[in-house]
């Protein structure tokens, strides 16, 4: 199980990442995260929405109510170009963290 803090920190890149693959709405996004993490990232669903709204206010994503033949209207979120830039920046940061951890753990093993 992934810790709460780590979950919270990774929400932003994950959401942006999912939206980069295509527009989506709240319920689907959550479902996707759960699938991808194999249930290891445990969210309370509600907490996703403030994150979405915050990202929207920061201008990283935009939302639109649509009613395309489905039974219900959906609020679709779409990543903006600013969002894509932010995702790249996030990616870089995460990669740096990985590489630090990677190096640490590699060295540890080699000294053994």
């Amino acid at each position: 199980m992934i810790s709460k803090n780590l979950t919270a920190a990774s929400t932003k890149p994950i959401v942006l990442g999912i939206l980069k693959q295509g527009n989506s709405y709240g319920y689907l996004i959550i479902k996707k995260i759960k699938e991808l993490s194999g249930g290891k990232m445990k969210y309370s669903d509600g907490m996703l929405y403030p994150v979405l709204h915050r990202l929207e206010k920061e201008g990283l994503i935009v939302s639109k109510w649509t009613l395309n033949g489905e039974s219900r209207p959906r609020k679709y979120y779409e990543i903006t170009s600013a969002g894509k830039e932010a995702l790249t920046a996030e990616k870089e940061q995460w990669n740096q963290v990985f590489s630090v951890l990677d190096t640490l753990w590699e060295t540890k093993q080699s000294t053994k």
Binding site: Y43, S44, D45, G46, M47
Partner: peptide
């Protein structure tokens, strides 16, 4: 699964 409303 939705979780705690006050938190949200």
């Amino acid at each position: 699964e939705f979780g705690d409303i006050p938190e949200v």
